[in-house]
């Protein structure tokens, strides 16, 4: 029981709530083929929005959903800088992330907001927490899978695959990229709003490293479980996130300090990124053209 309460439950909770963020990041990573650093800003934006609204007495559901919209707005800015001003997407995301730091402080009015004393969406009961995050993750997976089967969703996927073809078929690849940045950061903002309520505070620094953590989850998930379809990719992202948080918890138990965890993350990402390469080296190029 001690193991369940102090290890398994927190790992699953964290894995799922950060899994939402990973699902958001997957969208830009897949559609624009770029790791979107905006999320380091928009995670905090979503958290800051929810926290500020909660302190103002707004209903927790509304405050959490508001995190989606402010996150989405942040993503749209990156999308506009990239598509309208022709700035490279990675650079555009760094620029927005930097600017958002100030915006987030403005939203909160100070550098952090404690939520311990407030009524939030996240219940106190550890099982309740798990249920909430699992339900949210399941809903998001469902919505994403439905969306990517629509004409719009399919166009979005094709943009990451072959944007020249997408234009030949009369779809503006710029609009698709803008949409991807917007939706993706909306999901990340929503994740941030939940993370803040889960951890009991919003902080101007809390978004730092979000992109690397999300990529770690995505890459671990993809390497271990594969991502041949949208459904498999979304499930792999969630499982990858849970495994990533498990490794985190194990590292802490093994005596690493909390401050060492960024280094653990970086090492994990390198390791996960090298798995496909190692696989290729071991098992020679049979079917290597397939992606």
């Amino acid at each position: 029981m001690e193991f369940v309460l102090n290890f398994l439950l927190p790992v699953l909770q964290q894995g799922l709530v950060w899994g939402l963020v990973a699902l958001g990041v997957w969208m830009t990573f897949r559609v624009v083929n770029v790791p979107d650093l905006t999320v380091d800003g928009t995670l905090t934006t979503g958290a800051a929005t929810a926290a500020r609204l909660l302190t103002m007495g707004v209903h927790p559901v509304a405050a959490t959903l508001a995190g989606f919209f402010t996150g989405a707005a942040g993503g749209a800015i990156t999308g506009l800088i990239h598509t309208r001003l022709r700035v490279q997407p990675l650079l555009a995301s760094i620029i927005t992330m930097t600017g958002l730091y100030s915006v987030n402080l403005r939203i909160m009015g100070r550098s952090n907001i404690a939520l311990f004393t407030l009524e939030t969406l996240v219940p106190d009961n550890p099982w309740g927490k798990l249920a909430l995050f699992a339900a949210t993750a399941a809903l998001l997976v469902l919505l994403m899978n439905l969306f990517f089967r629509t004409e719009l969703g399919l166009s979005l996927r094709a943009t990451g695959d072959n944007d020249g073809m997408v234009r030949m078929l009369g779809v503006s690849s710029d609009s698709m990229r803008l949409l991807a940045f917007t939706l993706s950061n909306g999901i990340v903002g929503l994740g941030g709003a939940l993370v803040a309520q889960y951890s009991g505070f919003a902080d101007a620094q809390m978004g730092i490293g979000t992109i690397v953590a999300a990529l770690a989850a995505l890459i671990i998930g993809e390497a271990l479980f594969g991502a041949p379809t949208v459904f498999r990719a979304t499930i792999s992202a969630l499982l990858g996130s849970i495994i990533y948080r498990t490794i985190f918890a194990l590292a802490l138990r093994a005596g690493f300090q909390a401050s060492d965890l960024k280094l653990v993350t970086a090492a994990l990402v390198v390791l996960a990124l090298s798995i496909p390469h190692i696989k290729r080296t071991v098992r020679l190029p049979e079917g290597s053209e397939a992606r």
């Binding site: 004409e151 094709a158 072959n162 779809v171």
Partner: peptide, 23 residues
Amino acid sequence: TAPSLTVAENLALAAARGRSRGL
């Protein structure tokens, strides 16, 4: 063509050419 989409999905994209893509 888009390599990681299926044959049917590629054709679906082409079948919608000239129309706005909705839900």
